[in-house]
């Protein structure tokens, strides 16, 4: 892996952020809007049911972390779609650029974008709804990493599908994470799910990350078991996603689709 080529991809997507208003909207607008909506909901809950600040914190914390996960997996896929929409894939892959270098550059840029969006959302939650995530950030960072790694696996999986089926399945970039939302226990604990779904939820890193987040925010300290479970599942899904991506990429090359993707 050559640093100059990873840097080139970072530069390409950094320029895209600078020039494309949609990317700035994706980066900041939606995470902040989510917090505003969930913030009002927690105010309503607190006033009406006398629910403690705990629930408000769980909801706002979950909104921030889910926003990071969703944005990361979406931006991985949208990065590839940007090349497709601009018919730039042939130009890129007729250079010495390797797919792994492309992915690496995209990951680094997306980490910065996600961090910027999460920071804005966290500041709004603090300023408007008195939810301060920063004192517990150190305990939450491992779960954020879990979520990013799962977002990466999903992004790689979706990008593989894009390489094979092009813009016909581009909607997955925005909708795939939504499919996992009900069983990821983002806004409610695992125990709230019907029993048959709990086994499915248990196999998702998102479930462990959000269970861990709730334990941290409830003052129960760092949930090591949830962290390691999530990390193990992340590794498994990433390996599967990488194999799937390779298969789709090679099949696209074999079928001559790489030069016809639109």
């Amino acid at each position: 892996m050559k640093r100059n080529r990873v840097g080139a991809i970072m530069l390409r997507h950094a320029y895209e952020v600078r020039r494309n208003f949609d990317r700035i909207t994706d980066m900041v607008y939606w995470p902040v809007l989510d917090i505003v909506v969930w913030g009002f909901f927690t105010v309503y809950l607190s006033n009406r049911a006398g629910a403690g600040g705990g629930i408000a914190g769980f909801l706002l914390g979950a909104a921030i972390l889910w926003g990071m996960f969703y944005a990361f997996q979406r931006d991985m896929a949208v990065g590839f779609l940007d090349e497709l929409w601009s018919r730039n894939l042939i130009n890129l892959f007729s250079t010495p650029l390797a797919v792994s270098e492309y992915l690496c550059g995209l990951i680094v840029v997306n980490l910065f974008k996600v961090a910027a969006g999460a920071l804005c959302a966290a500041l709004v939650a603090w300023a408007c709804y008195a939810f301060n995530i920063f004192p517990r950030l150190l305990d939450l960072v491992p779960f954020m990493i879990d979520l990013m790694l799962f977002g990466l696996a999903l992004g790689v999986f979706t990008s593989g599908l894009i390489f094979r089926y092009a813009t016909r399945i581009q909607g997955l970039a925005w909708s795939f994470a939504g499919l996992l939302l009900p069983v990821s226990c983002v806004f409610y604990p695992l125990s709230a799910l019907p029993r048959p779904l709990r086994a499915v939820a248990w196999m998702l890193p998102t479930t462990h990350a959000f269970e861990g987040m709730r334990q941290v925010l409830a003052g129960g300290g760092f949930a090591a078991a949830h962290f390691w479970w999530a990390l193990g599942l992340d590794a498994l899904y990433f390996v599967l996603a990488a194999m799937f991506f390779r298969w789709m990429f090679e099949s696209s090359r074999r079928l001559g689709l790489l030069v016809k993707l639109e």
């Binding site: 050559k2 080529r5 840097g7 080139a8 991809i9 320029y15 020039r19 601009s86 018919r87 010495p96």
Partner: peptide, 22 residues
Amino acid sequence: YVSFPLRLTVMENLEVFARLYN
């Protein structure tokens, strides 16, 4: 028949490729 990212300027696009070729 192939193109470059449409919103990037000519200079920005060529900078990306200059880096790819080191």
